[in-house]
Amino acid sequence: MERNVGSLDGKARIGIGILALVAGGLAIGGYWAAGTVVGTVALLVGGILVVTGTTQKCPIYAGTGIDTVEKQ
C-alpha cells in the first residue's frame, strides 16, 4: 500500500491518537469516570490513529480513494 496520509494529517492523527491513548488509560485505571468500555475503545482508536499517522498509510483512505499526501 502506498502512502496516502499527508504530513499535516499524520501529525493530527498522532496528536489525537496520543490524547485518546491517555484518556483510555485514565478511564481503565479508574481515574476518569468514563468506564472501562469507553476506555478500551479509546485505547483501540488511539492506537490505530498513532499507527496510521506514523506509517502514513490508512486502509480506509485506500478503500475510498482519499489521498492527503502533498503533491510535488
Rank of each mutant, 00 (worst) to 15 (best):
L44F: 12
R13A: 02
L8V: 13
G29L: 14
T68P: 04
S7P: 02
G53D: 06
C58K: 00
K57R: 15
L44Y: 02
L49W: 07
C58F: 04
P59A: 08
D9N: 13
T55Y: 01
G10N: 12
T64K: 03
A23Q: 07
K57M: 15
T36I: 15
M1P: 03
L26F: 10
A33Y: 01
S7I: 14
V5A: 06
V37S: 13
Q72P: 11
I16N: 00
D67C: 10
V51E: 03
R3G: 05
V38T: 11
G65L: 01
D9P: 00
I66S: 04
V50K: 04
V38E: 05
A20H: 09
V37M: 15
D9E: 14
R13I: 06
T36A: 13
V37E: 12
A62E: 12
V45E: 02
T40A: 12
E2T: 11
I14T: 08
A12T: 14
G47S: 11
M1H: 10
A34Q: 11
T54I: 15
L26V: 10
G25T: 06
T68W: 10
V38K: 05
G53K: 04
Y31A: 15
V45G: 03
V5E: 05
V41F: 12
K11A: 14
C58R: 02
T64E: 03
G53W: 01
D67G: 06
K11P: 00
V45H: 01
I16V: 12
G35N: 01
V69D: 04
D67S: 10
R13E: 05
V45Y: 03
V22M: 08
N4D: 02
T55I: 10
V5M: 02
L19H: 04
T52G: 00
Y61N: 12
V5Q: 04
S7Q: 09
V37I: 15
S7V: 11
I66F: 01
I16F: 06
R13V: 09
A42H: 02
V50E: 01
P59N: 03
V69Q: 02
Y31E: 14
V22D: 00
C58T: 03
T68H: 07
A62H: 10
D9F: 01
L26I: 06
G6W: 09
P59Y: 05
A62N: 09
